[in-house]
Computed example of a mutant assay.
Amino acid sequence: MAHDAHHCCWSVPGETMNPGKTASGENRWRLVAAALADPRRLHLYARAVLAADDGAPLDPAGLTSAEAKSLAVLQQAGLLDVRENRVAPSPAVFRDLLAAGVRPPDSSARRFLVSGRVETYPRKRADRLELLHFLAGEVFEHARPPEPGLRPVLTEKELTTRLAKFTADPASIRRYLVDEGIVARDASGTQYWLTRPRPAEGMEFA
């Protein structure tokens, strides 16, 4: 019967969704788009929105069998809701879809990079230290010790070459690493090694 149709679960072609569960992310977008792609469902959705706006919402008991099926699909997509035998649009679905597409800002040291490179050196010392620790960890990640049991070292040329992948001024960054005590060098200035490990994720830099 038409008035019982809103209690059923109808699937949008190509989509699978359990009753009572809500899709998220890309699948949610596809579910909404698929629900409105059918002209009959789109027409019913428009009728429901206009009727609710006029203060005379649709009564599901007055829908045809085909319209009841369309209503079930629109409900499943979160576009329409049935309350007290009245069909009501659910505009929150669009707000939720937009919110789901917003990515939180990157809080890692990579936020200082543009296309993987340092374009501007941070002004705040805490930010500079965070960036320097990140760069040091990156360039020394695959450094090898001169002998088993010794600390990994890089020559000045190796360190400069690796830093050049991140900055147009590797010599200055190399000097900053030494000045901050993150990297040390021997008396001749030919070998460099990491003296301070990169802080764990989430630790503050001071």
Score class of each variant (00 low, 15 high):
Val178Ala: 13
Arg86His: 00
Asp127Asn: 13
Glu141Thr: 12
Val114Thr: 14
Phe140Arg: 12
Leu154Ser: 04
Arg128Gln: 15
Ala164Trp: 07
Glu158Trp: 09
Arg110Lys: 11
Pro145Tyr: 07
Ala168Asn: 13
Pro170Leu: 01
Ser90Glu: 11
Val153Asn: 03
Leu177Tyr: 00
Tyr121Gly: 06
Phe134Val: 01
Glu147Ile: 04
Asp96Ile: 02
Thr120Leu: 12
Glu158Asn: 07
Arg95Trp: 09
Ser90Thr: 07
Arg103Ile: 02
Asp127Ser: 10
Phe112Lys: 09
Tyr121Ala: 03
Val178Ile: 11
Pro170Phe: 00
Asp179Ser: 10
Arg86Trp: 00
Arg125Cys: 08
Leu150Val: 10
Val153Gly: 01
Pro105Ala: 09
Thr155Ser: 08
Val102Arg: 03
Thr160Ile: 04
Glu156Pro: 01
Val118Ala: 11
Phe140Ser: 06
Leu129Arg: 11
Arg125Val: 11
Leu113His: 14
Ala99Pro: 05
Pro148Leu: 12
Leu154Thr: 02
Val178Glu: 02
Thr155Ala: 06
Phe112Cys: 12
Arg174Gln: 09
Leu98Tyr: 13
Glu119Lys: 15
Arg162Ile: 03
Thr161Gly: 09
Leu98Cys: 07
Val93Leu: 10
Ala143Gly: 04
Arg86Lys: 00
Glu130Asn: 11
Arg175Ser: 10
Leu150Ser: 14
Arg175Phe: 01
Ser90Arg: 06
Gly137Phe: 00
Pro145Phe: 04
Arg128Met: 08
Leu177Gln: 01
Val178Met: 05
Pro152Lys: 08
Pro146Gln: 13
Pro105Trp: 01
Leu131Thr: 06
Glu180Met: 01
Leu113Gln: 14
Leu131Met: 08
Gly101Phe: 04
Ala126Tyr: 15
Phe134Ile: 02
Thr120Phe: 14
Arg103Val: 04
Arg175Met: 03
Val118Asn: 09
Leu177Val: 00
Leu131Ile: 02
His142Leu: 08
Pro148His: 15
Glu158His: 12
Ala99His: 08
Thr120His: 15
Thr167Asp: 02
Val118His: 13
Val93Ala: 06
Pro122Lys: 10
Glu119Ser: 13
Arg175Ala: 11
Arg110Pro: 04
Pro104Cys: 08
Pro145Glu: 07
Pro89Gly: 00
Thr155Gly: 12
Pro122Arg: 12
Ser115Asp: 15
Val139Ala: 06
Phe94Ala: 07
Val102Glu: 09
Pro145Leu: 05
Ala109Ser: 13
Thr167His: 06
Ala92Asn: 04
His142Ala: 07
Leu97Gly: 04
Ser115Glu: 15
